[in-house]
Design a protein around this nucleic acid. Structure first.
Length: 581
RNA sequence: GGUCCCGUAGUGCAGUCUGGAGUGCACGCCGCCCUGUCAAGGCGGAGGUCGCGGGUUCAAAUCCCGUCGGGACCGCCA
């Protein structure tokens, strides 16, 4: 190495020693006769004292420099308690500029810190400069520590790291595929994997028993703050297991991560809740348990109501807005707008007076009978001065609306215990959900096993059948999900029948898997975690782009390299894109 | 595919509702001064296709239409 010490490690005990540092000029304080440099390398920052006015004047921000000097205790009164290296400084005997820097597109050091201080596109465009900044670099370091711990835990549990192909065929995840043309077979295309799902099941047939992989996955869908077309999963599969094995492994992994990275001791086992309960109580399959405000089911209360909006609806539910009884008309209207923004017609509501009774003047209350009004606050769990919002209609969409409303209220009223970590298993997901075309589709994927109670009759009631599928959720964020798989051919065929997949289609799509399953497949199952999301949670940010080294913009483009680009006619011809199938 | 927000100096913003000279702030940049600062300080200076195109108007950063880019959300997507 061309340096002898890392700048951030210098301490008072080093005083008197000659050192050579290498790094970047983070700041320069030129006093004419003496110049102070904050020299930054990956380890931190140390102050360099330069008594050569000419050399000091020539330096600029982000010049890459090599400094020879002697560590000295700073003069009395000049220590900087805010820096780990603040008691010492390096008195330079020689300074060499290794490379100069052009004027910067945004400040590396400056009064503006943090991820929001520069527009994202500018940051990604010059990500190599963005990552010189403390916060962005810390996010990547957190991610690296996370994956390191993951590998340690997985290896300690005898899991085998196996890579699977990226150039492959469509996997049954339901999203759009990214496609890659194949020069050697014009008109034929690879799909990039949406997950290693099929391969990991094959590895179970292969007898590996315990597999894991940190795998890149590709899904050609629209963006969100927590979604990007190219992302990373921790993919796990094991044989001869049941749900408890997955839960125990996951809890071991997550408690280790939270302990080592955040110094937080998570209580185990994690809470468990069925999907049905999660929807009923929280209107979400990933409930945020950091606050209460559970939904109430008022279907019984309003059975036989003459109020047109609630009458004849399969479900009427409510959520309380604490203190909402004193909202202005304008504030109530803005909640209406919020609901309409989510595709609802509006939000029926009543206000509770200070006497604890429903104020009868409201637009909904005046349509309700005296009996309905009397019991309503208690039935909805509302107290004096609250507001009650209703959703009526088909159960699941109405619950989802109330669930989203519950979250919005929780945020709006500051009800969320921000420092808490509320982990939760959501279990017993439905096997199928209706498609627009009147058929059924697998909620998880078509290899998910039914629960024992439904094993023999899920095909008779596809809408009611429950799956051995599970998600692990923290604070309303889904960290991972998985299932116990089907390992018997007959049951697998029944699932294909329900989702309307013919034998021919099944054969052409997953024939290789079904073929493999003819040779004594073991009972198996697994789980996959969204590592970008997990890293973001551990790093304390909502945006997964912050924990990706070179993130893409919302249109799928890479602001740094300019990808994707048009191709030349030559490339087009060679790739065989235009060959008719 | 839909809704909303943003686009003004290198960076972050104000100005837009209510049209009147590229009007302004902070940081950065350039020059000079300065031997104990650490967001150093002082003095001076440069820097603008107000995203782009069209329209209305005597006059457009400002109003209208379109478009491009970015972001958030819905749809979609484990």
């Amino acid at each position: 190495m061309i340096r002898t010490r890392d700048a951030g490690t210098l301490r008072a005990a080093d005083a008197g020693f000659a050192v050579t540092l290498a790094g970047w000029v983070a700041r320069r304080r030129d006093h004419g006769g003496v110049t102070f440099l904050d020299l930054r390398d990956a380890s931190g920052v140390a102050q360099v004292v330069l008594r050569d006015p000419e050399a000091g004047r020539a330096l600029r921000a982000e010049f890459c420099v090599l400094v020879h000097g002697t560590v000295a205790i700073r003069p009395a009164g000049n220590a900087n308690p805010d820096l780990p290296t603040g008691n010492v400084e390096v008195v330079a005997t020689d300074l060499e500029v290794l490379s100069t820097s052009a004027e910067l597109p945004f400040p590396i050091e400056g009064s503006l810190y943090g991820p929001g201080s520069v527009e994202e596109t500018t940051r990604w465009r010059h990500r190599y400069l963005d990552l010189r900044r403390a916060w962005p670099a810390t996010a990547l370091r957190t991610r690296a520590r996370m994956t390191s711990i993951i590998r340690r835990v997985m290896e300690a549990n005898d899991f085998l790291d196996v890579e699977t192909p990226y150039l492959t065929r469509s996997t049954p995840e339901g999203a759009r595929d990214f496609l890659v043309p194949v020069r050697l077979q014009p008109g034929h295309w690879y799909a990039l994997p949406q997950s290693p799902q099929l391969f990991k099941q094959l590895l179970m047939v292969a007898g590996l028993e315990r597999y894991y992989q940190i795998a890149r996955c590709f899904r050609d869908e629209d963006f969100r703050a927590d979604r990007t077309p190219e992302f990373t999963q921790l993919d796990i599969e094991l044989s001869f297991l049941d749900e408890e094995d997955v839960y125990a492994l996951t809890e071991s992994l997550l408690t280790t991560l939270w302990r080592d990275l955040l110094d937080v001791d998570l209580p185990v086992p994690f809470a468990r809740m069925t999907y049905a309960d999660a929807m009923r109580r929280f209107g979400s399959d990933r409930p945020d348990l950091r606050f209460g405000l559970e939904l109430t089911d008022l279907s019984g209360h309003f059975a036989g109501t003459r109020f047109r909006v609630f009458a004849e609806q399969p479900y009427v539910g409510a959520v309380v807005l604490p203190g909402g009884g004193s909202l202005t008309r304008k504030e109530l209207d803005s909640w209406q707008d919020w609901a309409r923004g989510r595709g609802a017609r509006g939000l029926a509501y009543v206000l509770i007076g200070e006497d604890g009774a429903v104020r009868e003047s409201g637009p909904v209350a005046k349509h309700l009978s005296a009996e309905e009004l009397v019991g309503l606050p208690a039935a909805a769990g509302a107290g004096a001065g609250d507001a009650v919002f209703f959703a009526a209609g088909t159960e699941r969409p109405a619950q989802e609306l109330l669930g989203a409303l519950r979250l919005a209220i929780g945020r709006d009223r500051g009800l969320i215990e921000e420092s808490a970590w509320r982990f939760l298993w959501v279990t017993h997901f439905p096997m199928f959900e209706p498609t627009d075309g009147g058929g059924w589709t697998a909620v998880h994927h078509p290899f998910t096993a039914p629960t024992p109670e439904w094993a023999d009759r899920f095909a008779e009631e596809p809408g009611a059948g429950l799956a051995r599928a599970y998600d692990v959720v923290v604070n309303g964020i889904e960290l991972g999900g998985g299932s116990i798989r089907i390992h018997r051919a007959g049951m697998q065929q029944q699932v294909f029948d329900v989702i309307g997949l013919t034998r021919e289609e099944a054969e052409s799509k997953f024939g290789f898997l079904l073929e493999a399953f003819r040779y004594g497949p073991p009972p198996h199952g697994g789980i996959a975690f969204g590592l970008d999301r997990m890293a973001a949670v551990l790093a304390g940010t909502d945006a997964i782009r912050e924990v990706m080294a070179f993130p893409k913009a919302a249109s799928g483009g890479d602001p740094l390299t300019g990808a994707p680009t048009p191709i030349t006619p030559e490339q087009r011809r060679e790739a065989g894109i235009d060959v008719a199938p």
